[in-house]
């Protein structure tokens, strides 16, 4: 079974660990963590990813900028992106989807929702 790489871009170590912990339950999945948008871009340029989870509110470079830059890169035009938002941040969520994000999850994070989205988007990619 080929290994599928998932990038988690999130400034909160608790959230990163929570998402990575949930994704580890999927067979053949490897997770890489990045603490902000710039760190995420560095990781994206060093290897190929099949799915990206990114928070919106992050220091240095936020998730919206990251989504826009990822979508402008020919290598990642079709890579599924899931944004992490709060239920109240509807505008950010809509902007992220308009910029090319595929789906979103809201806080507090549910492991089931992460797994459900990862299964769906990894299959479609």
């Amino acid at each position: 079974m080929p290994v599928q790489n998932i990038l988690i871009v999130e400034d909160s170590p608790t959230m990163r660990q929570l998402i990575a912990f949930a994704l580890k339950r999927l067979p053949g999945v490897r997770t890489v963590e990045a603490s902000d948008g710039v760190d995420g871009l560095k990781k994206l340029s060093s290897e190929k990813f099949d799915l990206i989870f990114t928070d919106i509110n992050m220091p240095i470079m936020d998730g919206l900028k990251l989504v826009s830059l990822v979508r402008s890169d020919a290598n990642y035009r079709a890579t599924p992106i899931v944004v992490i938002t709060t239920e109240g941040a509807k505008e950010d969520r809509e902007r992220a989807l308009a910029l090319g994000a595929d789906d979103y999850i809201t806080k507090p994070i549910q492991a089931n929702r992460i797994l459900e989205l990862a299964r769906k988007l990894l299959k479609s990619s």
Partner: peptide, 20 residues
């Protein structure tokens, strides 16, 4: 069990982070 697993994961992560 899945829900319990998720709960335990949350508790583990919370505990792990608090003492990190």
């Amino acid at each position: 069990i899945e829900a319990e697993n998720n709960n335990l994961a949350n508790l583990y992560i919370a505990s792990f982070q608090l003492h990190s």
